[in-house]
Amino acid sequence: MPNFTIGMRLNGGRNNTMKLIGYLDRKSWLHEVNPLVKSVGMIMLITAAVISHKFLTPIMLIVFAFAILTSASIPISPILHFYKLVVFFSIGLILANFMFTRPVSDEITLIFKFGPIMATAEGLARGVRIVLRMLAILSVTSIFVLTTDPMDFLKVFAQLLHLQPRVAYPMLIGLRILPIFESELERVRLAQKVRRVRYKTFFHKLVLLSVPLLASAIRRAERISLAMAAKGLDTAKLRSKKRTKYSPEDRIFLFLSISFTFFLLVYTFCSPCP
């Protein structure tokens, strides 16, 4: 499941590139939306999905998510890929709900009964609803995940919380260094294999692997902080690309997500609606 792996590089920054937590690096109007605006919209939509018990709500949300992504020419194939991961889990979930749910009300439609197993239509419906809701939340989250540069997201948050650049940037860099760390761990492991190390206990292994890693991590951190300082980081106020006011893209996104959430809520509490 390559799309879901955290990491940019393996093997010491070779050309084998992986996607950063599923982020699709390209240009679209969704990429231009402020990550903060995007996360607010996302939270609203997810809240609607959680509140609503109607069958059609998650389906509408999925369609909405796909429509928005398509409008920005973002392929929906990565989402379908995420779906695949959910499918196996879902089947179990639906079956469990189908067969083991004790209905709350007395009105039940019994399909069959076998010993303790009582399969009801209500149970089935409930199972399907839960799975659909999961898929809906996944789709909505994808709008954010696929189109938000994680570095950008962290920057905006740092700005929101008024973090000093001295504090905020190491956080950003940490994100970049993580994959390098991972590949270095692999080198240490191989180096110890050549020396025929036999780890006696888990703790022993932890110590032997982490000592060299720690030594180079400290040195790397020092060098990075010097490089940052040499680029005038400390003289700076943290800024992210010109995003001080709401851009047209921000407004469109906010409008779409507010109005759709509103629509869903109205629909949810409208008793005659299906």
Partner: peptide, 20 residues
Amino acid sequence: DDELYSRIGYVFQNPEHQFL
């Protein structure tokens, strides 16, 4: 591993990786 690494020595880029 025993058979292999009693015959093959490998000096890694970063010497610290090998220190035990």
